[in-house]
Design a binder for these strands. Sequence first.
RNA 1: GGCCCCGUCGUAUAUCGGUUAGUACGCAAGAUUUUCAUUCUUGAAAGAGGAGUCCGACUCUCCUCGGGGCUACCA
Length: 510
Amino acid sequence: MDKEVRVRFAPSPTGPLHIGGVRTALYNYLFARQTGGKMILRIEDTDSTRFVPGSEDYINEALAWLGITIDEGVREGGNYGPYKQSERRSIYHEHVKILLDAGKAYVAFDTPEELEAKRKEIKNFQYDASTRQLMRNSLTLGEEETKRLIDAGEKYVVRFKIEPGTDVTVHDLIRGDVTINSSVLDDKVLYKSADDLPTYHLANIVDDHLMAITHVIRGEEWLPSAPLHVLLYKAFGWADSMPQFVHLPLLLKPNGNGKLSKRDGDKLGFPVFPLEWHNPVDGSISSGYREAGYLPEAVVNFLALLGWNPGDDREVMTIDEMIRDFSFEHCSKSGAKFDFEKCKWFNHEYLINMDDAKLAGLFMPILAQHADSAKFSHDYVTKAVSLVKSRITFVKDLWDQAGFFFEAPTAYEEKDVRKRWKDDTPKVLTELIGVLEGIADFTSKPSEETVMSWIEKNGYPLGNVMNAFRLTLVGACRGPHIFDITELLGKEETIARIKEGIAKIKKADA
RNA sequence: GGCCCCGUCGUAUAUCGGUUAGUACGCAAGAUUUUCAUUCUUGAAAGAGGAGUCCGACUCUCCUCGGGGCUACCA
């Protein structure tokens, strides 16, 4: 029997999650749920200088909003903790020692300044087998001197000693075999004494191994260092249990200039973060999909299809369908430009397919901002919402479209008045009031029949009467079927609005 | 500069050697509608270029070009 699938999403707490990171998390999640495996959230805080307070809470909240549930993590616990790298120092110490003792890593004392100087001095300088003899490290200094310097408190790093001249192959589930020669790899820093923390590479391999990760699903930016990771697995003797690698294509900016990043903030004209982010460092605020009015299901659906497809023409899919049909075979290899228009369309689709009562519930807070929402029953709001939802992209658009159900027009669209308000309109509408008063059943159909036959009998121009009527009810020539409006408004309010319109609307150019 | 990945309509993608190269978003036109939308119909729109392999290439190989990534004591 195959061993249980265990995947991890491993963000670093250097700010909010961006939409590309969300997509990576989502693919991990889809795969975990499909296989009945575990989804692990690991916090990779090995760069103490880039730590941003609030990031971890943000990550948790964002994933929760999107419905990406976590099985093991800092908050969830689990048998493979701790799940935060800064709490795993002793584990890394042990593993650094293993490599050091085996001669597969060495200590280096070169300062950042010295390294910078070397890079200027030698073009294409790389700290590797060809240059390590020129540097200040345990290989050139000897065991005794190295020990003396460390004891004297000199800052150092531990570097991975890469043997040059061998081909390293990484098998990627999306791309197939990727082979590079170890000579192009540098002796990567594995650990830095300055903050007593490992770098990504060491921590990542050690943790993935110890946490029994079976599939490493991450962004393509990691592909170049994947061979290094393979070499590390081998150095530790873990080659047999090495996870499968899956490098996802990157999410690119719409203009095709590079990958989407946190730093894009609001510059692109759309949010790059799932949730609004309040930067604790400079106080700036970046918009989020949640606050912009997106439904998490729509964002998830859109993101899922950016780099993956179900193999047929389906686009609007439930999360269960995505879980069932997800596969790496149908993941694309090339980067995907972010199409904000399509994202909006998904939101529109989810909104119009949503249960009316639920949609009304989402609209309530917005309604409360504009009107006295207590005056209206949930049933009334639900009906109003159902009549206009086909024309919205965001929940907040509902006020623009349905506001007249909650508030009589205070102004009338000038363009429409000019076109539809004629000299005899007040007279005709006054007559209409009489007709409406005589209607016993004020629901849509009977009302329409009565009014239509009245118009026909008198030979009035249909367009003008109806549009003038609409103008008094809505304030403009737009909105749902007019008798659906009058039914919901009720006879009293309908007539009151006509009277108000007759009194207030002045004929254009008069 | 070096190394790696990628390359089908504007965008996201289908096609896994043989298709009138399909779908969706967006765009345009038309129909429906007393209005605005919705909806429906139609249309414009693609295999980067060049060599091969093959009876036959979008599909396989190579080169060129183009895009992207990595190249830190960041992840």
